Computed example of a mutant assay.
Amino acid sequence: MISKLCNKIFQDAINDYHVYNNIDQPINNPYRISTLEHLLYMKCWIDTVQWHMEDVIRNPEIDPVEALQWKRRIDASNQERTDVVEYIDSYFLEEYKDIQAKPDAKINSESPAWVVDRLSILALKIYHMTEETLRSDASEEHKANCGVKLNILLNQRTDLSTSLDELITDIENGTKYMKVYKQMKMYNDPSLNPVLYNPK
């Protein structure tokens, strides 16, 4: 099952990051380039780094100049994240290029890679919510509330994993087909963002 592979690699990437817990720690991807595993690990590593950048920028005491620098790093990270999602979809497109869709095949509301993206973010939510349930400096009420939220997140991962596996099975069976649209993010493109192409 593809979801089992995703969830394992995501957990490994998150654990590996937290060995150092350093935004600038270089990635040490253990998987061979051009494999799906390599892309999954890279995807979750980017998400994990960005999660911690988002924490930094939400500090109410942050210097505005420093905050702008972090915002630009987050924008660049978002673009990198989107690129990797599209690489993952390219992998699936290649994997199933010879599958003949049935005449009544339907398109899914999102591509497999964007479901994978949601699973990666969910893995981070589960990791950090688990931390909140174990905080020694937090009240029992706080830990109990986080425990309730953690159970919801775990159920959500089960449901989302099932949905991903069913989508892949449907594509393999020809009952659904992939149609991928590039995200075409505009804010980083000097030719599309009016603030960049028409500075005042």
Results as ranks from 00 to 15, higher is better:
residue 126 I to N: 02
residue 153 L to N: 00
residue 99 I to N: 03
residue 63 D to F: 07
residue 118 R to F: 11
residue 77 S to F: 09
residue 112 P to L: 10
residue 73 R to K: 09
residue 133 T to D: 08
residue 109 S to Y: 14
residue 114 W to C: 02
residue 103 P to E: 15
residue 53 M to I: 04
residue 95 E to L: 11
residue 71 K to N: 07
residue 70 W to S: 05
residue 74 I to F: 08
residue 118 R to L: 10
residue 137 D to E: 12
residue 75 D to V: 11
residue 151 N to P: 00
residue 54 E to A: 02
residue 96 Y to E: 03
residue 84 V to M: 09
residue 57 I to K: 03
residue 152 I to Q: 11
residue 107 I to Q: 14
residue 122 L to G: 09
residue 100 Q to K: 09
residue 61 E to F: 13
residue 149 K to Q: 03
residue 105 A to T: 04
residue 142 H to K: 12
residue 144 A to C: 01
residue 148 V to S: 04
residue 115 V to L: 14
residue 136 S to V: 06
residue 113 A to P: 04
residue 106 K to Q: 15
residue 54 E to W: 05
residue 64 P to D: 08
residue 69 Q to D: 07
residue 103 P to N: 14
residue 117 D to V: 10
residue 99 I to F: 05
residue 149 K to D: 03
residue 150 L to F: 09
residue 116 V to I: 15
residue 51 W to I: 02
residue 67 A to L: 00
residue 138 A to I: 05
residue 130 T to C: 01
residue 149 K to C: 04
residue 109 S to C: 01
residue 144 A to F: 15
residue 124 L to E: 03
residue 59 N to S: 01
residue 128 H to V: 06
residue 97 K to E: 15
residue 68 L to K: 11
residue 128 H to R: 11
residue 78 N to G: 08
residue 130 T to G: 00
residue 119 L to H: 07
residue 89 D to N: 14
residue 140 E to V: 12
residue 139 S to Y: 13
residue 119 L to F: 07
residue 73 R to I: 01
residue 82 T to V: 15
residue 96 Y to P: 00
residue 134 L to T: 02
residue 149 K to V: 07
residue 114 W to Q: 02
residue 58 R to D: 14
residue 76 A to S: 11
residue 53 M to N: 01
residue 97 K to L: 08
residue 141 E to T: 15
residue 114 W to N: 11
residue 111 S to L: 10
residue 98 D to N: 07
residue 105 A to D: 06
residue 83 D to C: 06
residue 94 E to G: 10
residue 99 I to Y: 03
residue 116 V to M: 11
residue 124 L to M: 04
residue 78 N to F: 10
residue 130 T to E: 09
residue 58 R to W: 12
residue 137 D to V: 06
residue 120 S to E: 12
residue 135 R to S: 11
residue 144 A to E: 12
residue 77 S to V: 05
residue 66 E to S: 01
residue 110 E to L: 08
residue 109 S to R: 12
residue 110 E to F: 10
residue 154 L to G: 01
residue 75 D to W: 14
residue 103 P to K: 13
residue 155 N to P: 04
residue 98 D to G: 00
residue 149 K to R: 03
residue 53 M to K: 08
residue 95 E to C: 06
residue 118 R to S: 09
residue 123 A to D: 10
